[in-house]
Nucleic acid binder design. Sequence first.
DNA 1: TCTTTGTGTTTAATCGTTTAAACATTCATT
DNA 2: AATGAATGTTTAAACGATTAAACACAAAGA
Lengths: 333, 333
Amino acid sequence: MAQKKTSLKDIATKVGVSTALVSYVLNGKMKGRISEEVANRIKQVAKELNYHPNQIARSLKTNKTNSIGLLLADISNPFSSQIARIVENEADKMGYAVIIGSSDESVEKSEKIIEVFLNRQVDGLILSLPEKSEQIVADLKSKDIPFVLLDRYFPSVAANSVAIDNFSASESAVNHLLSNNYNNICIISYDTELVHLNERLRGATEQKEINSTVGKVRLGHIQEDVECAIDKFLNTEQSIDAIFFTSNLLTISGLKYLNKKKVIIPEDMGVIAFDKTDAFDLFYTSISYVNQPLNKLGREAVRLMHQAINDNTKREQIFLLAELIVRDSTSRK
Amino acid sequence: MAQKKTSLKDIATKVGVSTALVSYVLNGKMKGRISEEVANRIKQVAKELNYHPNQIARSLKTNKTNSIGLLLADISNPFSSQIARIVENEADKMGYAVIIGSSDESVEKSEKIIEVFLNRQVDGLILSLPEKSEQIVADLKSKDIPFVLLDRYFPSVAANSVAIDNFSASESAVNHLLSNNYNNICIISYDTELVHLNERLRGATEQKEINSTVGKVRLGHIQEDVECAIDKFLNTEQSIDAIFFTSNLLTISGLKYLNKKKVIIPEDMGVIAFDKTDAFDLFYTSISYVNQPLNKLGREAVRLMHQAINDNTKREQIFLLAELIVRDSTSRK
DNA sequence: TCTTTGTGTTTAATCGTTTAAACATTCATT
DNA sequence: AATGAATGTTTAAACGATTAAACACAAAGA
């Protein structure tokens, strides 16, 4: 950054006034006390010298950086990157810059990244934390740092949060299958403590009428465990006629394998997915899915965070409704 | 950010020394001049009070923020988000935080975002710029700001850049088709001034032996124009037997449409793609594609940027080789 | 004439660091 | 005893902004 940037002082010197006056003029403060003439001269010189305030200096004084930290599980996962995009846009509208980090579902990495965020004096945090992060949430609360949990939340520690109503989303997905005459439904879900994912499972299984089986998939072994679960369903159990996948990665792995096994959708097997992905476009049958309102999620997260920054005494927990998009993968011919 | 953070001064007061000494100890400077005893006491108190240096203050003094700006076309596009992920990791290793922005292929938006980055005193920039951005590059150069162009570059203004050798990547893709007896190849490409994309086109078409047709797709009308191009190939022209798509979005739109039109791959039509996407997993035939070395791209970009930050007199232009991954979509049975 | 009020501008402290330079003390050398 | 090094620590300015408070001066009211 050579070519030293112009500072308030440069302008002050050139115009022949104090830096204070320049600051007042450029910030539009003390309106009505400053002479038009001087004000104009200052503004003009500022433009001439291509002045841009040094945010760092400003931040040091005001104790506001107008930046936020966004922690995601993995920015290269489409769900995360779409959220990132929306948060970035919303934040920008409110004058915040966004610093991003990926936790890879690791608590230690999350802690480390949050520390980096805080050292950089971000004004607030938007976090999608991995399982077993209750302590992190508790620590942030005790330090009174403004933050919002996004997508994932922890009932044991109350905090600002934005998520969808996973229970009812799953419920309606399964109801849809039932009403389309799929009666032996199996659910493929993660083996996790994350509440939002377990809510998806609960919503799908806690229905009196349903005769369901569950396949649990370990995070680091998605393809392997999905295949294993599907094999089990196809062979040993009573004949399954539909699968509900509770995440986008699970769906992709599952469809890939069903393809390989020549299972025809929806004739041999009904399929319903959680989240949409581009990949569906290339599948021979269009896929029914639970559509999360990503735009609203992102917008609400930024709004709550902004609110927390300005007044961290309120707490809000927001659950948005997901919408069921019905396509061909759940319609028996 | 309530609960006032502890500062150097707090430690100094508690230990009974000057802030300077605390700073020296904590930064490991003036080694050998400071008494062990005092040093230990300072370190201990720092830990007790959970001291973390205020990066903002430090930045103001040192004129280094240890942050970089990353401008992408659209963080929600998989290519961008994967790059973002890699850049984020590499940058973190070198102690840089990453601020992200998406240009949406707009020059004005790019300018605006870069300005935000610079006001925040980022140490350097990594940029994927839209077409007609030569002036931006020239301005950055004249201001002597350290930056690296990533993926996209502009031959008319020399600058640090990292990209793949698009020409030879396309060349080998087309050669592969030719050697598999596809002789009427058509290329679907963007209607753009972006050099890296036109190099893909040039690499594919500038071969004596090839009998090729080109479909140009406008950025805002991908699905529409891809369909139109494919229709044209299928109807009016001499029978096309292979399509080379020069980007991932083009590929997805194209395959989707070929599906709809019941064109069988690879029997009726050979297909080769640029970039891999998850979506391929769900297609009935595995897709051959040009694989960009994303990890290397990201790593080299960060390395060059770091180099530019420390010495902005060198210029490097790096072209990495992409690899052709051969699958079933280009093998005639 | 003397205060008061209003207008226009400056002074100076402050944010939390870094760091060159100054200071003070001890110790060895001549 | 005087000089010089070596060691250990402090002083104080600086980075570039913000902002309460002070200052200076003119016009208006008592």
